[in-house]
């Protein structure tokens, strides 16, 4: 048993993968019980994985081991501080969790000066483009400023966009933003299609060869039709029932 599992777990994983793939894809037809089942498995397996990986990657190597085998006893204070989060559940002492939240929010807030500097100073600098060079460059630079200033004016909130100059600039700004969003949409379609290509690669390059390899054994021809029959029967009732409900 142990040896069989060790030898075959790769194939089982591929089959499980194909099953999960088809299970989730049923949502494209409509919401159904297969999807629900895989959705719960997904949340369950990832929840458990999340706890495991936090234990394996952080708590064990960065906290438990330094504390117990390197003798860095003061790491225990991290657990005390960490326990402060759980005061959330106490009605009377909930405020203690606010102390540790405060610390973390303070950390996040204090980093902003560096982030603004490293992130945006070069952006301000590279926005200083000279109107010079070829006509096409001057045109491009002009477009750059028109779009930049109009789009920024759309994000001014403290005055009414009523004065014609402002109103038109802000409206134009919204238009220009749409160009940006259109560009993003167009570029994104490509990325999203590639995701499905990735799935197809899995099915074509991993699963189908696996099916082919297993089709050599006679056991496959006994088990497979049975599985197909069971799945399609369940599928029939699942989809028929939900259709009735909706009608």
């Amino acid at each position: 048993m142990v040896n069989w599992l060790a030898a075959n777990y790769g194939s089982i994983a591929i089959w499980a993968g194909a099953l999960c793939t088809f299970g989730i894809y049923t949502i494209l037809y409509k919401e159904n019980k297969f999807y629900r089942f895989f959705e719960h498995i997904f949340i369950g397996v990832y929840g458990g994985y999340g706890v495991y990986i936090t234990w394996h990657n952080i708590i064990l190597p960065k906290w438990w081991r330094p504390m117990t085998s390197e003798g860095l006893w003061w790491w225990i204070f991290a657990a005390v501080l960490g326990s402060m989060f759980y005061f959330m559940y106490s009605k009377k002492h909930a405020w203690i969790s606010r102390v540790i939240f405060g610390l973390f929010m303070g950390f996040a807030a204090g980093g902003i000066f560096r982030e603004f500097y490293e992130g945006y100073f070069p952006q301000i600098g590279s926005s200083m483009k000279p109107f010079s060079g070829s006509y096409s460059n001057i045109l491009s630079v002009a477009v750059f400023y028109v779009v930049l200033l109009a789009a920024m004016s759309y994000f001014f909130f403290s005055f009414e966009h009523k004065h014609p100059a402002v109103k038109n600039t802000a409206a134009a700004g919204r238009w220009f933003l749409m160009i940006g969003f259109g560009a993003m949409f167009g570029a994104t379609v490509m990325g999203r299609m590639t995701l499905f290509i990735g799935r197809l690669n899995f099915l074509i390059n991993r699963w189908i060869p696996e099916v082919r390899a297993e089709a050599q054994s006679s056991l496959f021809w006994i088990i497979m039709p049975a599985v197909v029959l069971i799945v399609s029967t369940i599928g029939y009732f699942v989809f028929r029932k939900s259709q009735k409900l909706e009608a």
Partner: peptide, 10 residues
């Protein structure tokens, strides 16, 4: 390999 990764990618 079977569940976590494939559910995620799908």
């Amino acid at each position: 390999d079977g569940f976590v990764q494939n559910l995620d990618a799908t």
